Amino acid sequence: MVMNKINLSKRSIDIAYREEGQGTPVLLLHGFCGSSAYWNSVFPLLSPTCRVIAPDLPGHGLSGVPAAPYSIEDYADDLLQFLQLLGIEKAVWFGHSLGGYITLAAAERHAGRMAAFGLIHSTAYPDDDKGKENRLKSIQTVQSSGIAAFIDGLVPKLFAPEHVETMQTKIHEAKEIGYCTSQEGAVRALEAMRSRPDRTGILASAECPVLLVAGENDQIIAPDKTFTVHHNRVRQALLKQVGHMSMMEDPQQLAPVLIDFVQSLR
């Protein structure tokens, strides 16, 4: 896997990214404590028909760590600059989990720069009171016990319950990816997710095509938290027998959904 780097002058940080293929630009944004490596099995399926670009989000993988404070809106603005530096005026954005929150912020702030967008195991709802409390507990765990201990507790929950035993290799891979998240990067992301607003209205008012993808057995974001809007510009796809990590659990089921959506735009 060849990784490139590009510098965001506004932040004075480097963004590491992987790029393959030609055609419609497709931006893949991974989830919390992930990296572009989450998409390793999806790349060869999408790149024959699309120009696929997957960055490591700031504070994750090989990318630099932004200074605090850093909001979901800051992620969105920085990724827009990232695309501009690559010479891309419009792209299809697909955001997994945290990446979906960023995608919605970009749709709100930079709608004219999106050809279409999709949420993959994500939601437009904000954290409720319990969710906000859990973010604070996670911050405390990261700061007191370190990133490795936090990742060891987090990753098994991302997979469907039936896959915790049968996909040990994938779980190990996801943990190894997570260990590369900096402690500061994890805290920045937790703070940003905790303070993000309700963006269900952005889904309802979107003027571009929207794709919503949920996992049947997702323990983190249940399908009803993803499928919150129903109108003729919104497609829904419920993936069978996967949890929060379809790109690793069943890329052969996820990729055709993404390809079909992108091809429908032409």
Rank of each mutant, 00 (worst) to 15 (best):
M1T: 13
K5W: 04
I6N: 11
L8F: 05
R11P: 00
I13Q: 06
T24S: 14
L28G: 04
L28I: 03
G31Q: 10
G31H: 09
F32K: 02
S36P: 00
A37R: 14
W39S: 07
N40K: 15
V42H: 04
S47A: 15
C50T: 06
V52Q: 08
I53W: 12
P55G: 08
P55E: 09
D56A: 08
P58S: 08
G61A: 10
L62W: 04
S63K: 09
V65H: 08
P66F: 06
P66I: 02
P69W: 02
Y70L: 06
Y70V: 00
D74Y: 01
D74F: 00
D77I: 01
L86G: 03
G87V: 03
I88L: 12
K90E: 13
A91V: 03
L98P: 02
G100V: 07
T103L: 01
A105S: 05
A105F: 00
A106N: 01
H110M: 01
A111E: 08
A115M: 11
A116Y: 06
L119V: 01
H121L: 07
D128H: 13
K130R: 14
G131A: 12
E133I: 09
R135L: 03
L136K: 15
K137Y: 07
T141S: 11
T141F: 05
V142W: 02
S144V: 00
S145L: 13
A148Y: 00
I151G: 05
L154I: 05
V155E: 02
H163R: 14
E165V: 13
E165P: 06
T166S: 15
T169S: 14
T169P: 06
H172R: 15
T181Q: 12
Q183I: 02
Q183E: 13
G185M: 10
V187K: 13
M193R: 03
R196G: 01
P197S: 09
G201H: 14
A206G: 04
V210S: 14
V213C: 11
G215I: 06
G215V: 05
I221Y: 13
D224W: 09
K225N: 14
K225W: 11
N232F: 09
V234S: 13
L238P: 08
L238W: 10
K240A: 15
Q241V: 05
V242E: 05
V242I: 13
H244V: 05
S246T: 13
E249W: 10
P251C: 05
F261Y: 12
Q263Y: 06
S264F: 13
S264K: 15
